[in-house]
Computed example of a mutant assay.
Amino acid sequence: MTGNIDLLARAREGQIAAVARLLSIVENEEPEAAEIVRATHPDTGHATVVGITGPPGAGKSSLVSTLTAAFRARYPRVAVVAVDPSSPFTGGAILGDRIRMRERFLDEGVFIRSMANRGNSGGLARTTKRVVNLLDALGFDIILVETVGVGQEEIEVVRVVETVCLLTIPGMGDDIQAIKSGIMEIADVLVVNKADRPGADRAVKDFAQMMTLGTPRLDWKIPIVKTSATEGTGIDDLVAAIESHGKWARASGDARRRSLDAMRKEVETLLRERILRELAERVTDDHLDRAAARVADREVDPYAAVEELLA
């Protein structure tokens, strides 16, 4: 652990290479990951964490780049965690948002991390929460999490961030159909991006009408913000909406509720992983083969075979 203590110290000093190495250990679940999480967990809970989600083509990466610049003008350190689809060959991130955000590289106050979702459903990688917590512990003020554009089931982001910004754009056809169901229910801020296109006002009206049909979330009225990442319009309004939701969430207890839900999910995930590892150590392939043969020979049923293996 001595080497990791030195690595952690250098990361806390702001050395980019050390930050990147620590993130790789946690993301790849290397043997040292647990010790790093233990050492940094007490320092978490200070950063503002914002999720940017929505259907493919909504302009998430462009908006994240522009939003990063806006937050950077207000805060010393901003981090971006961009989750991309996995390559079917290497398992790495296919698109690499760092390429699309190359104009932010020269800013020492901005750190960008691309993560492969590794086939995980929900728009995020399985270890995204751990990566975000580590960046939080290392002193980043704002952390932007951009999800994979996978559609209406992309709801895991709500367990990772404090504020969820849901993007759409005018002219997608049936705008409401594109983001219906689960993903609509987790939105804290609705963003009509590429608002310089025709139909932006109509999209805003459609969303406003749609929200009157649902059950309001306590006393938070979801704002609808028009933005254009390419022209830089509406960005200040979006930042204000995000900051307003953050203040409400902390005051109302919604942030605490979301944090508890996220931690329960994280503990449950780690518990499952631990149980599976211990079972894998005790139940060998020979055990499974013998159990399968007994089931095939009708000596026992599958449920009884599992009970025997667990015993």
Score class of each variant (00 low, 15 high):
residue 255 A to M: 12
residue 36 I to R: 01
residue 19 V to A: 08
residue 238 L to H: 01
residue 92 G to K: 13
residue 86 S to P: 15
residue 125 A to H: 11
residue 63 L to C: 03
residue 305 A to Q: 07
residue 226 K to E: 03
residue 36 I to Q: 02
residue 234 G to N: 00
residue 268 E to S: 14
residue 199 G to V: 04
residue 84 D to F: 05
residue 46 H to A: 08
residue 287 H to K: 10
residue 135 L to P: 08
residue 253 G to A: 15
residue 279 L to P: 07
residue 141 D to E: 12
residue 210 M to F: 08
residue 99 I to M: 09
residue 38 R to V: 14
residue 212 T to G: 06
residue 245 H to P: 03
residue 234 G to I: 00
residue 283 V to R: 10
residue 5 I to L: 09
residue 203 A to W: 00
residue 310 L to G: 05
residue 212 T to H: 06
residue 21 R to W: 13
residue 204 V to R: 00
residue 52 I to M: 12
residue 150 V to M: 10
residue 43 D to A: 15
residue 303 Y to H: 11
residue 141 D to Y: 04
residue 34 A to T: 13
residue 304 A to K: 02
residue 174 D to E: 09
residue 147 T to Q: 04
residue 136 D to F: 03
residue 177 Q to A: 15
residue 222 I to K: 09
residue 271 L to Q: 14
residue 47 A to G: 14
residue 277 R to I: 11
residue 9 A to S: 11
residue 297 D to N: 08
residue 107 D to S: 08
residue 10 R to D: 14
residue 284 T to P: 07
residue 137 A to S: 13
residue 198 P to A: 08
residue 128 T to Y: 06
residue 263 M to P: 01
residue 135 L to M: 10
residue 80 V to Q: 05
residue 199 G to W: 03
residue 237 D to R: 01
residue 142 I to N: 01
residue 216 P to V: 14
residue 3 G to Q: 15
residue 212 T to C: 06
residue 218 L to D: 14
residue 258 R to G: 02
residue 30 E to M: 11
residue 76 P to I: 04
residue 273 E to T: 10
residue 7 L to T: 04
residue 194 K to H: 13
residue 184 M to I: 07
residue 127 T to P: 08
residue 86 S to M: 12
residue 78 V to Q: 05
residue 241 A to N: 04
residue 136 D to R: 07
residue 225 V to H: 03
residue 290 R to E: 12
residue 277 R to L: 15
residue 34 A to S: 15
residue 293 A to T: 10
residue 162 E to D: 10
residue 192 V to D: 05
residue 213 L to G: 13
residue 124 L to N: 11
residue 43 D to L: 09
residue 229 A to Y: 01
residue 122 G to D: 05
residue 215 T to A: 13
residue 2 T to F: 10
residue 289 D to F: 13
residue 209 Q to W: 13
residue 105 F to P: 01
residue 186 I to D: 04
residue 294 R to K: 12
residue 225 V to N: 04
residue 270 L to Y: 12
residue 281 E to N: 11
residue 245 H to A: 03
residue 89 F to K: 13
residue 45 G to F: 14
residue 291 A to R: 08
residue 51 G to E: 02
residue 22 L to V: 11
residue 122 G to P: 01
residue 78 V to H: 07
residue 144 L to F: 02
residue 61 S to Y: 00
residue 164 V to H: 00
residue 149 G to M: 07
residue 152 Q to H: 10
residue 84 D to K: 06
residue 113 R to G: 15
